[in-house]
Amino acid sequence: MRKKVFVLVIVFSVLINVNLLVLAESSERRSSYFQSNGDLINGWYWLRDTALGHYAEWIFEDIPPGSEELILDITALATDRPGGGRGFDAKFKLIYGFPGNANMGGVLETKVVTLPNISSPDDPSGYTCHGQVTVDRAFISGATTILFRIERDSVWDNHIAFKKDSIVLFPAGMEEIEEEQLSEGNQLPETDTLEGAILIQPGIYIGSLGDKDQEGHRDNNDYYQINLKKGQLITLRLMVPGNANFNLSLLDSNRNSRGSSITQGNVESLGYVADSTGSWYIKVSRSSGEGEYQLLVDIQNQNDAASGQDAGSSYQEAIPISAGTFNGFLKAGDNED
């Protein structure tokens, strides 16, 4: 039976976006060309016109040819209107393929993408969205130049913003790099029942599902225990193998499911504000397939009105303030301040 590996990553700042992919610097590719006709504000090009004519476009060159999938690490901003609110996801059309040249026309495909909002309570705007997107390039397996273009899909979609560094591309070979970098660490015992859940801290965990024991029973569930205080924000991200369907759940101290995960490619994300203090549980379950997964756990304290805590959900828990402008934070599990 395959044993699990534990790697702990210390989060030094609430503003750090921890990437689920551990990659060698030489594996990443950045665009050689970028353009956008969006509205330029503070270095970001906002796509927000009602005619849906705004776009952002990147061209990557010298990509090794092949039919393997490409993984895009995308960072965007999103809000619902000019000067709008925080916490909105970024939804858009991703158009990609061979851009064409003088001798050959372009070959393009389109997919609709939604990036979850990952803004921390201390993020002054609350607009930051991030995620990994997997794209199939079998239809352009010989191409070494690849174009990526982003457009809004509907006038009802949120306003979104990008810049040149918004897309980082990881070509084939990434999986081997990831395995090599994560091969060291402390071994964890099996955690396939809630009663046997191992207490963990914020960090990155490597586990596996789908293996059979000596009696032929498959390992379908892994449970982890995490201690949370009321008002703390927990963020989970699960990267699953490409041939598998794994699910991510968060259970409170009464074992009730809290929040819901968002799936983007082979990454599931779940964010929730604890509404009680105590032991909570993370469940990773298997629907189909098998293999290793990577689980990121991040916990942050809220900072409503620069108080270092959540403002609370009742007038008895109100934070005293004076005249001025203050920032607060609301999310699933924390509906009132």
Rank of each mutant, 00 (worst) to 15 (best):
S261L: 00
G259W: 01
S269D: 09
S276Q: 14
W280A: 02
E268S: 14
E268C: 05
G259R: 02
I282Q: 04
G289M: 06
G265Y: 00
Y272H: 10
A274C: 02
A274Q: 04
R286N: 05
S288T: 10
R258P: 06
Y281N: 03
E290K: 11
I282Y: 04
T263K: 13
I282H: 05
S288L: 08
V284Y: 11
G278N: 05
Y272W: 13
G265D: 03
G259M: 01
S260V: 08
S288A: 12
R286P: 01
S287H: 15
D275G: 12
G289L: 07
I262W: 13
T277P: 05
G278K: 03
T263W: 09
R258D: 07
I262H: 14
K283W: 12
E290F: 12
S288N: 12
V284D: 11
W280L: 01
L270F: 04
S279L: 14
D275W: 09
V267F: 13
R286W: 01
R258F: 06
I282M: 05
S260R: 12
Q264H: 13
S269P: 10
A274E: 03
Y272M: 06
S276H: 10
G265W: 03
S261C: 00
S261W: 07
L270I: 02
K283N: 14
W280F: 11
G259P: 01
R258L: 09
R258W: 06
E290Y: 13
S276T: 14
V284K: 08
V267Y: 13
G278D: 05
S279F: 15
W280R: 05
T263S: 09
E290I: 06
V273I: 10
Y281W: 07
T277M: 03
D275N: 12
A274D: 04
E290V: 07
R258E: 12
V284N: 09
S285R: 08
T263A: 08
E290G: 08
G289S: 09
S269F: 12
E290D: 14
T277D: 03
S279E: 15
S276R: 13
I282W: 02
V284E: 10
L270D: 02
G289P: 08
S287R: 15
D275K: 08
Y281M: 05
E290T: 11
L270Q: 02
T263Y: 09
K283Q: 14
I282E: 04
S287C: 12
S287D: 15
G278P: 07
S285I: 02
Q264P: 10
S287P: 14
